[in-house]
Design a binder for these strands. Structure first.
Length: 962
DNA sequence: GAGCACTGC
């Protein structure tokens, strides 16, 4: 019987001969010239060479040196045999499964033909419906289906009677409700709603719109015996607010959650009764409901709250609701926003009516930088970079004014404002301002963590803030708040509370007793730079809306004071609102949503949102989705895209968990996917940064991987949780208990999804059959790399200032100091894969895993083999090249083809892997391959070609020092 | 030597 890959033998001979040739010539080179150094003084080239020959001699010698330092990929005999065996068995395997229907029919146009090779199954039916449907047909179809909101007169009567027999508790709560400003608008709102399908309600925090408006509607419906056809949904941008608002409303109705009021957020819900009820949920949750209920037949009223925040989710739903209401004339929509520009929402909804609820807050006195400078007599450091004539001008100006003593202070202030430093954040100015305030809690807004750390340090070290008189709380999403409850309480007599916060204190965290707000006027914005094609995070001036929100934080319990640390003139340059999120972020997930809701072409739909994103941004995201094989050339969802669109994950991490299910290693990969998508649980504890870093290094277990550290943290947390010492574990390792708890619950959610998709046999993420390879760290890294591919960088230089790597798109990048791979003495491999790359003070890779060449070859979707001057190279789409042994390269490529076949089959025929058959053997061979300890170096490209010269690294370092 | 803030059947 002839070997199916018999041709390999001949080629092997061929390749050996080629290598032999070079071997001989290099040997002869050595023997001729010995160990001569390069310099002429040491002998240099042989004396008999002349002119051009000398040049050629050095060229060849350089090549020779390069060749010697380049190690070549060559599979060990053992691995070769395994791969060859699998390849032998692969012959005809998928053709048989596909019934030969596959090759010819993929060429023809219609979708039915295109996916003919997929066997009839539940998956195929669902998938075909999805790819061939459109929203209008779906809405028409959905409207024919009977809704739960059918009139039921008995129920109407029952709800009415229940409502009329209000308890004492209800009545006492009602007294408080009647005092809210919203109450005075109750009649107007209900009247407006009767004659209009859509209305806009504006009002500041404290006016009671969020808690009262849904109740106005519900109570009115019940009183008019419409309870059985009323179900109100009210969306909130944050999980916490969905819960707390629901709790508040239930309390006002003297009920427990779950009767007429409930909430639903990811991983947690208390649902109210089906009818005659209000459901508070996160905006993302409504988006999920839309997948199963495109006409929103389950609801009579949709209330979108806080739409002025312009999140991607609320902007998306605003556009989608416009389509839905045209087919559902009985659906009422209420858009609720702060008083910033409610007109824009009205205009977007065909000039629908607006109603304003005045808010109630105590007056807040505002001061600007000029006032603050006057007050503190603060001086900025001298401006050194001022143009000469400018300085002369000031001098002259000052001389003229010198005599007018009464204005001297004012003039000095103006002089200070001319100093360019007045535009920069001055922590010293803030500290002096804090020191001179009268009693009352102070809230300071700063742009980022470094500023919080520095200000905290200044205050602790300058001796003006003794612990018995001051208590300082740094507030940042990545910092543990030492005593979470104390921060909300009034401190004891004679003690001053100072909170140093980021924009987290603008909306997410409310501290009631704040009297003074110090607003530095800057915040960090995450954006997407289309020109440079990179995510950025840089401090910028806040918008007027943010500034107003910050000011409002001072007047919650009594009149307050707000100090803006920018001039009145600077304020004139501020934008009215922050840029809508949809214009700042990548659009892959939005596009997948458009596809799963069957809204047609991404560009067409996105043109209909309030602030349509740039076409280039859409193209970039479409390109990535095609690279990931989630969309095809006609922008249709592929079978993989269909799965990915249903997962509550970004598509790259979604791909990761599907692969993990196939390779039976779900626990660690779920942990990593959850951490990358949600947030990692590592805290940055003030003053204990080094200790925390050591703990993270310990969890990395010498694997050179932040991702492994994330996984290990969750594994140990879960073990600790079972034995009830999770809290102390979190304390010891500087981890967030709440984050880890949520991450752990997300793992279960992923398992449920993959179970429904049939990639797992159990809804339990710890199921043994789904975790056969969970201890295989190299495989975990390989799957992480496959999900993150082509995010690969090559480490080039470790300096005192940091670790620098190279990526094809950006050239020089730096590894973020929080990564376990920052400034490692010796890396196991120069390649690192990463999830987040962000431009701040430098281009940083935030989370990294060191990966070997075999892992990269495994992660890449394809590779090419080329021959150059007698040597063979494997080239990857992510720009790495490896010198290789010809036969090994062939085997690796064939193995990859077989793996791609397996993936395509599995994705179109969801199921778990049978480990005792061909599939199992193939995956085992791949696992063996990624574990191959091939000692392989990067084929040395010239530094200049990589854009990686010494001067470039220097530039990178200089930027960082700024 | 450093990551604004959110969110998902």
């Amino acid at each position: 019987m002839s070997h199916p890959y018999g041709s390999f033998s001949a080629q092997r001979m061929h390749s050996r001969r080629r290598h032999g040739d070079r071997g001989e010539s290099s040997q002869s080179g050595e023997s001729h010239f010995g160990n001569h150094g390069r310099g002429r003084g040491q002998g240099g080239h042989p004396p008999w060479l002349k002119g051009k020959q000398i040049g050629l001699y050095y060229r060849d010698k350089a090549r020779e040196m390069k060749q010697k330092s380049t190690k070549v990929i060559k599979l060990s005999e053992h691995v070769q045999v395994q791969i060859e065996r699998v390849l032998y068995n692969s012959k005809g395997y998928y053709e048989k499964l596909y019934n030969n229907a596959y090759a010819e029919d993929t060429l023809h146009g219609t979708l039915e033909n295109k996916y003919m090779h997929i066997h009839d199954s539940q998956f195929k039916r669902k998938f075909m419906n999805m790819v061939s449907g459109n929203l209008h047909e779906n809405l028409d179809r959905a409207l024919l289906v009977k809704s739960r909101l059918e009139r039921d007169s008995d129920l109407d009567k029952m709800l009415f009677n229940e409502f009329k027999t209000a308890t004492q508790e209800y009545q006492s709560m009602e007294k408080i409700r009647l005092k809210l400003p919203a109450h005075h608008k109750k009649v107007d709102i209900l009247r407006l709603l009767k004659t209009n399908q859509v209305i806009v309600i504006s009002g500041e925090t404290g006016c009671g719109k969020t808690t009262q408006v849904p109740q106005f509607i519900l109570d009115d419906a019940i009183e008019h015996r419409d309870g059985s056809v009323t179900r109100i949904i009210c969306t909130q941008p944050r999980r916490i607010s969905a819960i707390s608002v629901a709790e508040r409303v239930a309390a006002e109705r003297a009920e427990r959650l779950g009767k007429s009021v409930g909430f639903h957020i990811r991983l947690e819900k208390v649902l109210p009764r089906d009818r005659g009820s209000i459901l508070f949920c996160t905006t993302g949750m409504l988006l999920q409901f839309l997948q199963g209920d495109p006409a929103l037949k389950e609801f009579s009223h949709i209330i979108l709250d806080e739409i002025h925040e312009r999140t991607t989710e609320s902007d998306f739903i605003l556009a989608l609701l416009k389509l839905i209401i045209s087919k559902r004339s009985d659906l009422k929509v209420l858009l609720m926003s702060a008083t910033v520009n409610p007109e824009s929402f009205s205009e977007y909804y065909n000039n629908c009516p607006m109603i304003h609820i005045p808010g109630f807050t105590y007056p807040v006195t505002e001061y600007y930088l000029e006032d603050v400078l006057f007050l503190t007599e603060f001086k900025f450091p001298p401006a050194t970079a001022l143009p000469q004539d400018h300085r002369k001008h000031i001098k002259k100006y000052k001389q003229e004014q010198q005599k007018r003593d009464e204005f001297q202070d004012m003039i000095e202030v103006i002089d200070q404002l001319r100093n360019p430093h007045s535009e920069k954040l001055s922590l010293d100015l803030i500290e002096q301002l804090i020191r001179k305030r009268d009693p009352g809690a102070i809230l300071v807004f700063l742009p980022g963590m470094m500023d919080i750390i520095k200000l905290n340090k200044i205050m602790l070290e300058n001796g003006h803030y003794p612990q018995n008189q001051y208590v300082i709380y740094p507030l940042h999403s990545r910092m543990p708040t030492i005593d979470q409850k104390l921060i909300f309480k009034e401190p004891s007599e004679g003690v001053r509370k100072i909170i140093i916060a980021t924009s987290i204190a603008e909306t997410s965290i409310t501290i009631e007793d704040v009297v003074y707000v110090i607003d530095c006027g800057k915040t960090k914005y995450g954006k997407f730079d289309l020109q440079k094609n990179i995510q950025t995070l840089e401090p910028e001036w806040v918008s007027l809306a943010n500034a107003r929100q910050r000011k409002g934080r001072a007047g919650r319990v009594k009149p307050g004071v707000c100090y803006h640390l920018y001039s009145k003139a600077r304020e004139k340059t501020f934008e009215c609102f922050p840029l809508p999120e949809m214009l700042r972020t990548r659009l892959e997930e939005v596009i997948l949503q458009i596809k799963i809701l069957q809204l047609g072409k991404a560009k067409t739909f996105l043109e209909s949102v309030m602030s349509p994103p740039n076409m280039k941004a859409i193209d970039l995201s479409l390109d990535l989705l095609r690279t990931l094989n989630a969309l095809d050339d006609e922008e249709h969802l592929t079978p993989l895209g269909y799965h990915l669109a249903q997962l509550p994950l970004d598509p790259r991490t979604g791909k990761m968990i599907i692969w993990a299910a196939l390779f039976s290693c779900v626990e660690p990969v779920f942990a990593i996917a959850a951490s990358l998508n949600f947030k990692d649980a590592f805290y940055c504890p003030l003053g204990k940064e080094e200790e925390a870093r050591k703990k993270k290094l310990e969890l990395n277990m010498n694997q050179f991987s932040d991702h492994i550290a994330l996984s290990e943290a969750l594994t140990r947390f879960e073990a600790a949780y079972k034995r009830s010492y999770a809290s102390s574990f979190c304390r010891d390792y500087f981890l967030s208990f709440n984050t880890l708890k949520l991450l752990s619950e997300m793992k279960t959610q992923f398992a449920q999804h993959l179970y429904q998709m049939k990639f797992m046999n159990s809804e339990n993420p710890s199921d043994v059959n789904a975790n056969k390879n969970s201890k295989n760290t190299v495989l975990i890294k390989a799957i992480v790399c496959a999900g993150l591919y082509p995010n690969v960088a090559v480490i080039r230089k470790v300096t005192r200032n940091g670790t620098f790597a190279w990526t094809p798109e950006d050239g020089c990048v730096a590894i973020h100091p929080s990564s376990v791979n920052d400034r490692v003495k010796e890396y196991t491999s120069p390649y690192i894969t990463y999830f987040t790359k962000q431009l701040s003070t430098a281009i940083y890779l935030h989370d990294t895993t060191c990966v070997t060449a075999p892992i990269l070859l495994f992660a890449a979707p394809n590779m090419s083999i080329r021959k150059e001057k007698g040597n063979y190279f494997i080239s990857l789409p992510s720009s790495q090249n490896f010198a290789c042994d010809w036969q090994s390269a062939q085997l690796i490529q064939k193995l990859q083809e077989q793996f791609n076949n397996l993936l395509e089959y599995k994705i179109t025929h969801p199921g778990t892997v049978c480990w005792n058959g061909f599939e199992g053997d193939l995956l085992k061979a791949l696992t063996l391959f990624v574990n191959h300890s091939a000692i392989i170096n990067l084929v040395c490209q010239k530094d200049e070609e990589m854009g990686f010269s010494e001067s470039n690294i220097q530039k990178c370092e200089d930027n960082m020092c700024d």
